[in-house]
Amino acid sequence: MHILATEGLTKRFPTVTAVDQLTVTVGPGVTGLVGANGAGKSTLIKMLLGLLPPTAGAARVLDMDATTRGAEIRRLVGYMPEHDCLPPDVSATELVVHLARISGLPRTAARERAADVLRHVGLAEERYRAIGGYSTGMKQRVKLAQALVHDPKLVFLDEPTNGLDPRGRDEMLTLIRRIGTEFGISVLVTSHLLGELERVCDHVIVIDAGRLLRSSAIGEFTQVTRTVTVEVDEGTDALAQRLAATGQRVTPHGRMLLVEVQGPGTYDAIRDAAADLDLALIRLEQGRHRIEDVFREEAASV
């Protein structure tokens, strides 16, 4: 089942093509949309919300056409914009209750949902104070709360970790993971930082200059490579020589050695070599691709 699907989706502005022939499908769970600033992420979200008509192609969200059934889509979808969007003179509670009603919730339901959702994003007593006095982290939580208040089927989170300190970033990412799993709401989250999406996404879509670079499950991005990283306390050179002598292919990588895995025998060879040389083996780790590496490779090959 697809949460959203685009087919040759294109948006041209007078001076720039923001989204170019994008064909992609997104399933349930947490999906990362990765691209540098100006890659077309925000334009794509606006088209998916039915707020911006595409120049060409089509988009379906929750099995509804974005150009013709935008209002219906917007009733079941939440949106957290990238930029500041909060009025300073009202409290978080008042704003979120009000926006819940704009989403179509009756008054009492809006109040209950707002209280629930503000608790889930971690705003306690401060939710009764005017938003003008909030920290960036608290403002991001309010922005997230308003996107969730009407219990959407899908939320678009545009750069939710923007401007947060490392701890705030961690908390936001944990929250996003919970939204996708515990809350059962599908998430499309954009970021220009690839590493942070690795932790929370099931699937990652990489776009650059409005074009699709890659779309695949997170496992494929971080798949196991055929190398093993070896780190010893000292005697790295001796170990490298001994391993090379037994027919292993070794490349030094700083203080560590990358050994190509030819079979189960490779592990035995490393163990035996370390034992024979009486070395203190600190680390033996399977090499993994990180999203950054993939992005770099993809970008280089295009």
Binding site: L51, R74, G104, Q146
Partner: peptide, 18 residues
């Protein structure tokens, strides 16, 4: 003024209201 200045408008327009 507040909705325009603080860019609250997108929060409305991403909902069913036109």
């Amino acid at each position: 003024a507040p909705d325009l200045r603080h860019r609250v408008l997108p929060l409305y327009l991403s909902r069913p209201i036109t």
